[in-house]
Nucleic acid binder design. Structure first.
Lengths: 203, 203
DNA sequence: GCGCCAGTTTGATCTGGGTCAAGGAGCGCG
DNA sequence: CGCGCTCCTTGACCCAGATCAAACTGGCGC
């Protein structure tokens, strides 16, 4: 049941496989879910971490495309098989429902960010959100928010997540560093120096 | 199982009822799901039409508040009862899962709108979306997109849905009217005169 | 170590949409 | 019928963040 597959950073996860759509479970790594307009604007609409489901069981294929942000290992299922299996195993469907409801909550909170928050608020919210989702090595944390961590995102991807341009993201990072709120030891690394200030900025 | 309740336009649907959280099914009318910041900015994160579920089964209460846009009838359940009932009826859970997945897809499409679309694109997308969801009387259409319909939203609510200000919404409506793309016979009524133009604008 | 190149930062300028401030316009009510 | 209230439109101006245009930086191959 379900074949292992590895995807390296930057590679798309293809949804077509011998005539059937796929559903997958993330084992390791981080992937982005995006939608794009015809003229190339991109919005990241979801981020999948280990243990998250991706794909669209039942009904038609979803519009989002999936690309690995880090090297990743996933477990893929032909959708037909998965659908049948799920319908025969209510416990699995229940689990899936709980996860989908949680994801919907997170997505709705992100809508508020996209529609109503300013650039400084977006960046602060993003950093706090990341510190909760990432331990030092990029996996799920059960040890509370991390003080320092490595982003699985480039600046452009942060921009695509927050509905900003790369220049604005860069300027906001520089500002936070200048104000002593965060340290940026390397392009991808963040250390939170003043969490209270970030929480204030996040609104 | 489940008590009927009526909510008039503008009234909130209270989630606390003799010590237990509620879950509800919309029978008639339209309701908005919103989140707000401390300083009063509001974002509509979902709209519930007849047959939609609202509330948060399993897990903790969701952050969104629910307000009726039109007079509405809903069927409410104590959440504990609902959770137990759902777990004993896999068919219900399956239905709920399908709806939740569909809602997640719609929400993700809306993220693209909020993060990356311009005001004219937002308005055009909104009008096309409404024409698909509303028949003349504000109920679900199975007759294809409506050419004219009554919005269940005030201008301010359209702004809260699209992440704009009321003034920008008003100006965009005026522009579309001036360009002969739509007719606006009254504050809440819209008639689409040139669907192709709207689709072009929506991007 | 040196050059190259993608990703990033920084600066200068522009503009879409926000803000502030008046008017209109529909509608319920006396 | 006209008063008043709420919602909506319109106008003038402004500013956060986009756009355009260079530099800078840090890996990596040679």
């Amino acid at each position: 049941m379900g074949r292992r597959r590895t995807v390296s950073a930057g590679e798309p996860l293809i949804w077509e496989d011998d005539d059937s759509l796929l559903v997958a479970n993330v084992i390791e790594g981080v992937l982005k879910l995006t939608t794009s307009t015809a003229d190339g604007r991109e919005q990241i609409v979801g981020v999948a971490y280990p243990s998250d489901f991706i794909g669209r069981p039942f009904g038609q294929t979803s519009a989002a495309s999936v690309v690995a942000l880090t090297d990743a290992r996933v477990c893929v299922f032909a959708r037909n098989d998965f659908d049948r299996f799920a319908r025969e195993h209510p416990e699995l469907e229940h689990k899936l429902l709980e996860r989908t409801l949680a994801e919907l909550d997170r997505t709705r909170a992100w809508m508020m960010l996209l529609g109503r928050k300013s650039a400084p608020e977006k960046i602060a919210t993003f950093l706090l959100d990341m510190s909760e989702r990432l331990a030092d090595n990029g996996c799920m944390a059960h040890t509370g928010p991390a003080r320092q961590f490595t982003l699985p995102f480039s600046r452009q991807q942060v921009a695509d997540l927050l509905g900003l341009t790369i220049e604005t993201v860069s300027r906001q990072f520089t500002k936070l560093k200048a104000d002593g709120v965060v340290a940026l030891p390397s392009r991808r690394d963040v250390e939170i120096l003043d969490r209270a200030a970030l929480e204030m900025l996040a609104g």
